Computed example of a mutant assay.
Amino acid sequence: MRIGIIGPSKNEIMSFIEKLSDKEVSSFAMLDFYRGSYNSIDVVALYSGVCKVNASIATQILIDRFNVTHMIVVGVAGGIDRRLNIGDTIISTELAYHDVDDGILTEYHPWMKNIYFNADSYLINLCRKIQSSKLVTQNIYFGRIVTGEAFISDFGRGHIINKYNPLCVDMESASIAHVCYVNNIPFLAIRTISDTENESGTEVFEKNCVSASINSINVLEKILEII
């Protein structure tokens, strides 16, 4: 088993990378890949850069160059479901794009039956064990994540809720799931809420990015300790 771990930004992943033992760094496509071990699990981790294309580049390199067997993305997300508070962690069950026409996925490669990518059931079940055993202190929710390269306005929020009814929105997870789908690689997204409808804006995001990311990394570390 070798797990690829992606954080979109340095703030979202570097505190985990610093804990890896026996680190080796390789560079491809202007990205630095850190291979090492955590709890004797072989991992390759990096920060990919934000948005879909950057995340997709990193994902395919992890598969082609490092032969990862599983893929996990960690980081922050904007809360859509009104139950969510800053610091709550979302575990993906299924993922979709909110800014890609449905037919792109169903009428062209990869000719999907619907627009949703499923997260890996084994990794989801590990997170359920973490939740039930109270191995982390934050609230954990399981559900749908949608991805797009836009900051969500009130109008956009209504459209996303009506069509997708997700728990949260981010800028990378569905694209990573897309690459994993066509390569048959098990995938999971772990995203912690950094901003909500009531607490939004650049200042809120910047204030909460590091602390929210730590919550996602805590879940990741527990996975690696029980997998």
Rank of each mutant, 00 (worst) to 15 (best):
M1R: 05
M1Q: 07
I3V: 15
P8I: 10
P8F: 12
P8R: 12
S9V: 04
I13D: 00
I13F: 05
M14C: 08
I17G: 02
E18S: 15
K19N: 00
S21M: 02
S21D: 13
S21F: 01
K23R: 06
S27F: 07
F28C: 08
A29I: 10
L31T: 06
F33V: 06
F33Y: 15
Y34H: 15
R35K: 13
G36R: 03
S37L: 04
S37M: 04
Y38H: 03
S40R: 08
D42K: 08
V44G: 13
A45W: 13
L46T: 09
L46V: 09
Y47S: 14
Y47H: 15
S48G: 07
S48N: 08
C51H: 03
S56N: 03
I57W: 03
I57T: 02
I57Q: 08
I61R: 07
L62C: 12
I63H: 14
V68D: 14
I72Y: 10
I72K: 01
V73Y: 06
V74H: 05
V76L: 08
A77G: 06
G78C: 10
R83F: 04
N85E: 14
G87A: 11
D88H: 07
D88I: 05
T89D: 12
T93C: 05
E94M: 01
L95A: 03
A96G: 09
D101G: 09
D101L: 10
I104T: 10
L105W: 08
T106P: 07
H109D: 08
Y116C: 02
F117W: 05
F117M: 03
N118K: 11
A119K: 04
L123M: 15
I124N: 13
I124A: 13
Q131V: 02
S133V: 00
Q138G: 02
N139M: 04
Y141Q: 08
Y141G: 05
G143W: 04
G148Y: 09
G148E: 10
E149P: 13
F151I: 06
I152L: 13
G156Y: 09
G156L: 13
L167T: 08
V169H: 11
D170N: 10
M171D: 07
S173H: 05
A174M: 01
A177V: 09
H178K: 02
V179M: 14
C180F: 09
Y181D: 03
Y181H: 13
V182N: 01
P186W: 02
T192S: 15
K207L: 11
S211T: 12
S211C: 12
S211P: 11
A212S: 15
S216H: 03
I217A: 01
N218G: 00
L220H: 01
E221Y: 00
L224K: 01
E225G: 02
I226T: 09
I226M: 15
